[in-house]
């Protein structure tokens, strides 16, 4: 049974695409046949982060408009043979996303026996975001530890429980997971960031993971590698934990405690 997972947030720049790339990669690393779709039509990003931008010939809109077959648009990952990418069109806008078309693409992917379809939602609460979440079974709501991001996530959680296909048809609601990214325990301790408790108190959604703030995310996207591939970094470890928890494993939270930096590290820099 194929599961459709939407990665969404409301607010832009919080790490949806980074998360979509690492999460889909992580699922494929665990042996699940996974497809990640970029719904951010008009502003392609996912293919850059996945390092496939030179291999994009056809995109999601071509498939929706019935110009080509789905298999022609699916890009197979070079490292993982269970991972496929469906890029967004850069020359079109979000109005090109039609509900019937999206449904047909998802149905065809289901027929191809994908285990997971990860939908990378655009920012905002308009057509693109609604289309990305409409057919979702589960949702990763990406939030930064600051007030406006938390508010926007609250809005998106409301839409997940009222505007999705599951909500409209009165089925079991979309399963919601909260993912906090760019978390910096030292800045939480200094009162500059909201703490995990503060965020939970406002949103009351189960936490699936905390991704620490890190330079390596920037480094990964510049290299066109999903951050989960960066061996030995805390970001990669945190994303692996997220995937494990998503698959039902019990993993304690990591990277959430403030670390006292020694003067030595402060002077010479630390990872």
């Amino acid at each position: 049974m194929t599961k459709i997972v939407v990665v969404t947030s409301g607010k832009g720049g919080v790490g949806k695409t980074t998360t979509s790339a690492s999460f889909a990669t992580g699922l494929a690393m665990r042996g699940h046949k996974t497809c990640v779709i970029d719904f951010d039509v008009g502003l392609r990003n996912l293919d850059l982060i996945m390092g496939v931008e030179r291999r994009v010939v056809y995109d999601l809109i071509n498939v929706i408009n019935d110009e080509i077959k789905l298999t022609q648009a699916l890009i197979k990952d070079k490292q993982l043979d269970k991972l496929y990418i469906l890029a967004a069109s850069q020359t079109r806008d979000k109005d090109a996303l039609k509900q019937e078309g999206v449904e047909r693409v998802l149905d065809e992917l289901k027929a191809m026996e994908f285990d997971y379809i990860v939908c990378d939602s655009p920012a905002g609460i308009e057509t693109g975001a609604l289309m990305a979440m409409h057919y979702a079974d589960e949702a990763l709501v990406v939030t930064n530890p600051e007030v406006s991001s938390v508010r926007d996530s609250d809005r998106i959680l409301g839409m997940l429980s009222s505007k999705t296909k599951r909500a409209i048809e009165g089925k079991e609601p979309v399963k919601e997971h909260l993912l906090i990214t760019r978390y910096n325990p030292n800045r939480v301790e200094g009162g500059q960031m909201l703490s995990l408790d503060d965020i939970h108190e406002i949103l009351r959604t189960p936490l699936i993971g905390v991704i620490p703030e890190s330079e390596s995310v920037l480094q990964a996207s510049n290299q066109g590698t999903p951050a989960i591939h960066l061996q030995g970094t805390d970001v990669a470890e945190a994303y692996k934990d997220v995937v494990a928890r998503f698959l039902g494993e019990d993993k304690p939270m990591r990277f959430t405690e403030a670390v006292k930096q020694s003067w030595f590290k402060r002077v010479f820099g630390a990872k």
Binding site: R151, R155, L157, G158, M159, S161, S162, R204
Partner: peptide, 8 residues
């Protein structure tokens, strides 16, 4: 019985 989110 469900949370009422921002905008609802």
């Amino acid at each position: 019985d469900k949370p009422l989110r921002s905008g609802q």
